[in-house]
Amino acid sequence: MRIGVITFPGSLDDVDAARAVRLAGGEPIPLWHGDHDLKDVDAVVLPGGFSYGDYLRAGAIAARAPLMQDVVTRARQGLPVLGICNGFQVLCEAGLLPGALTRNSHLHFRNRDQVLVVERADTTWTSDYRAGQRIVIPVKNGEGRYVGSDADLDRLEGENRVVFRYADGNPNGSSRDIAGVTSENGRIVGLMPHPEHAIEDLTGPSTDGLGFFTSVLKSVVAA
């Protein structure tokens, strides 16, 4: 299975994301933001980092990159897309996911191992988890506070589109402890914490992140 990992200028975690894809049994395909070529991938990962130095707003300029135009078109047709941290910011800026990510309420960069509760275990990227399961994966961001109007948040909750919530402490002041959300069809998922940093005991706090990458492989095989 070919899983594309996009590199933008300022991406940091593209190599870790590609490694996670490989450890899960997929074939990582490097994609370049400036191309118009998705290289026949079966799914796409937008990695963490500081694309374009977070100029303007985090993810704002990357969301208008040439390759993102192709990602938006294909995602609307059902291509699975995972946005991690800066990738989540890019997906919100591109209009593929609702809401926005803003400066942490305490204004500090927060880097720690974070407990999450899985709210949805039926998306393309979370089918290897159980609803209600607690997982531990690293969070590291300065602009990870998920916000939206109360009406938008109510609608999001009504549509059951919150995929993860922070537990045992909210690291950035996100509304309603929201750590990750999904598209209506469950094929696009964005979250601030970093599953690609929790795939091996040697380097991560757990191997809880691997499930993202094994989940998508199953969905692609099933499709």
């Binding site: 803003t102 400066r103 942490n104 309420s105 305490h106 204004l107 916000v147 109007s149 109360d150 002041g173």
Partner: peptide, 14 residues
């Protein structure tokens, strides 16, 4: 500017 309903921690720090 941020909408009135969106909290502005930078403005609060100032």
């Amino acid at each position: 500017v941020l909408k009135p309903e969106i909290s502005d921690p930078q403005g609060q720090a100032v």
